[in-house]
Design a protein around this nucleic acid. Structure first.
Lengths: 202, 202
DNA sequence: ACCTGAACACCGTTCAAGT
DNA sequence: ACCTGAACACCGTTCAAGT
C-alpha cells in the first residue's frame, strides 16, 4: 500500500530557502529541513539526492529571482541610467536575501552550484547595456569590471568589511558614477560621450 | 610529572594553514590538524580555544602576509602606477593562496575573524595613494570602489564565475585602467589630469 | 603540564522494515 | 510508493585518568 506523499520537492526547497535566510547555511541541515516540512530526515532522500542537491535547488530558485530583477531593471532609459538601475537592483536583492546572495556567489562543489543558465538573461542584459556604452570590442571586459565591482561592494558590505564609517550608500553611488565615467572614456577614441562608441550589429 | 610539549601554537597554525590550502576549509578539522602535528585532537585544546580560534589565528597569519605585500607595492611610482601595482599584488596573493584569501574575506562568526588591524598598514597605503588621485573629499569612497572591484574580480575568478571565455588577465588590466580613468575625472572639476586633484594637507 | 581514550551531542546518509 | 527507526561513519568538544 502506498503511503500518501507527506511533502514535495517544492515544499522542501521553499522551507530550505526560509531556513537558509533565517538561520544560515550551516543550520540548513537535513534534520532541520525535515522538521520544517514535517517528516524525518531520511524521507528527504526520496525527494532530493542529498544535501548538496537541495542547496543547488535553492540556488536555482534564488538565481531565477535575481535574473528576473536585473532583467527588469535593464529596461530603464539610456545605458548609463540602465546600468545604474541594474546596480541598485543587484544590491537590493543582496540586501533582501543576503544568504541566498552569498550562496549564488560562493565557491561550491560542482554538484551544488546553481545552474548558471538561469542568469543568462541577466548576463545578456548587462552585456547589451555595457556594449552600447563602450563598444563591441570591450564589452566583455567592461561587463566583468562592472559585475566585479558590484559583487565586491555588496559582498564586502554583507561581510561587514567596511569598518571606517562614512556613508556606504554614497560610496556605492560614487562607484557607479566613476565606473560609468571610466567607461565613457574607453576605447581607442578618447572622445566625449557625444562621439558615441561604435556599436556595429552583432 | 609534566609531559614534554609535543606541539605548539606555532606548529598548529602552520600545519593548519597548510591543510587549509591543500585540502580546503572543511577538511581543516581538529582531527586532521592533530594528525598533522602528531597528537590526538583533544590535545589541541591545550593550545587553541577551539576550532574557531584556530581559524582566526590562521587568518591573522594570512592577513599579515597580505598586508606586507600591499604595503610594499604601494611604493611603486606615481599614484596610478602604485595603484596598479597594489591591484596586481592583491591578485597575486589570492592566486598564490586562494583558500587563505577566501578565509580573509569570508563572513565568519565574530570570534573567528582575523584581526582587521593587521591590514591597517595596507589600508592606509591604499587610502594615501587614492587620496592623491581623487582628493581628500572622496578618498574613502574611491578606496571602497577600488577595493570592491579588486576583491570582486578576484573572488569571482576564484569561484570560477567567469564562464564566457575571453582573456581574464586583460579584463583585470582593463578594469584598473577604467577605474583610474574614472578617478581622474572625479570631483566637482571635470578637468583633464593636468589640472590635478586638490590634495590639501591632512 | 600536557596528552589520552572514552563519552556526548551532533552531522549526512543508508537500509531493512513497516504501511 | 513513501516514511520510519536504527545504524554507521564522521564531526567538535569535554573530562577524568594517565604520565
Amino acid at each position: 500500500l502506498p503511503t500518501p506523499r507527506r511533502t514535495s520537492v517544492e515544499q522542501i526547497v521553499l522551507a530550505g530557502r526560509g531556513i537558509l535566510e533565517e538561520e544560515g547555511l550551516e543550520s540548513l541541515t537535513m534534520q532541520r529541513v525535515a522538521q520544517a516540512v514535517g517528516v524525518r530526515a531520511p524521507s528527504l532522500y526520496k525527494h532530493v539526492r542529498d544535501r548538496g542537491d537541495l542547496i543547488r535547488l535553492i540556488g536555482n530558485d534564488a538565481a531565477r529571482e535575481l535574473g528576473r530583477r536585473i532583467d527588469q531593471a535593464a529596461g530603464t532609459g539610456d545605458p548609463p541610467e540602465a546600468l545604474r538601475a541594474m546596480a541598485y537592483e543587484f544590491r537590493a536583492f543582496a540586501h533582501a536575501d543576503p544568504q541566498a546572495y552569498r550562496l549564488l556567489f560562493a565557491r561550491l562543489p560542482e554538484d551544488w552550484r546553481a545552474d548558471p543558465a538561469l542568469l543568462a538573461g541577466a548576463i545578456e542584459a548587462v552585456m547589451d547595456v555595457i556594449g552600447r556604452l563602450v563598444g563591441r570590442e570591450h564589452t566583455l571586459e567592461a561587463a566583468r569590471t562592472f559585475v566585479a565591482w558590484a559583487h565586491g561592494f555588496v559582498s564586502m558590505e554583507l561581510a561587514g568589511a567596511f569598518r571606517l564609517g562614512g556613508d556606504v550608500d554614497a560610496a556605492f553611488a560614487y562607484g557607479v558614477d566613476r565606473l560609468i565615467a571610466g567607461f565613457e572614456r574607453t576605447g581607442s577614441a578618447v572622445g566625449s560621450p557625444a562621439d558615441g562608441p561604435r556599436n556595429e550589429a552583432a
